[in-house]
Simulated scan of single mutants.
Amino acid sequence: MRLITLSLALLLVLIQYPLWLGKGGWLRVGELEEQVAAAHKKNDELERRNAKLDSEVRDLKDGTGAVEERARYELSMIKQNEIYVQILGKGQTRPAPDAANPTP
């Protein structure tokens, strides 16, 4: 009787092995679900970035406002006959560009 009990217990363990540790086992499924969640998170971030870039591209194609804004802030360019005024906070020092000779 003892031999039958041991053989049934061993058989039960052998049957459980693929369920827990096999190729499609619960542990592997949990790992794959974590990978899928990480991929969804990254995709959401990339979709937000793409939407922002798409908006910027449409703005650059349709109007001159975005081009002018980039020229002003990134290249410190000014229009002809325009006076450049920059207000600095306490302790900040930065030389203003020469209004007579704007940088291209």
Rank of each mutant, 00 (worst) to 15 (best):
M1L: 11
M1R: 10
M1A: 15
R2M: 14
L3F: 09
I4G: 07
T5K: 15
T5M: 08
T5W: 06
T5D: 13
S7H: 07
S7Q: 11
S7D: 10
L8V: 10
L8Y: 07
L8D: 13
A9V: 05
L11W: 03
L12R: 05
V13C: 14
V13F: 14
L14A: 06
I15G: 03
I15D: 01
Y17G: 12
Y17A: 09
P18V: 03
P18G: 07
L19V: 14
W20C: 07
L21W: 05
L21N: 11
G22S: 08
G22C: 08
G24C: 05
G25W: 02
G25I: 12
G25P: 01
G25V: 14
W26K: 10
R28T: 15
R28Y: 03
G30H: 02
L32H: 08
Q35N: 07
V36G: 07
A37V: 12
A38R: 04
A38V: 06
A39Y: 07
H40T: 07
K41Q: 14
K41R: 11
K42F: 03
N43R: 12
D44G: 07
E45Q: 09
R48Y: 06
R48I: 15
R49K: 08
N50A: 13
N50F: 01
A51L: 10
D54Q: 06
D54G: 14
S55W: 04
V57I: 09
V57H: 03
R58E: 05
D59R: 00
D59K: 00
D59E: 09
D59S: 05
D59V: 00
K61I: 00
K61G: 00
D62Y: 00
A66W: 00
E68N: 01
E69D: 10
R70G: 03
R70C: 02
A71P: 00
E74R: 04
L75W: 08
L75I: 08
S76N: 14
S76P: 02
M77R: 01
K79R: 08
Q80T: 09
N81D: 12
E82R: 08
E82D: 09
E82S: 11
I83Y: 02
Y84T: 05
Y84S: 01
I87V: 13
L88W: 04
L88F: 08
L88T: 11
G89I: 09
G89Q: 09
K90C: 04
G91T: 07
G91A: 04
G91N: 08
T93I: 10
R94D: 12
R94M: 12
P97A: 02
D98A: 06
A99D: 15
A99F: 02
A100R: 10
A100L: 14
N101Q: 14
P104S: 11
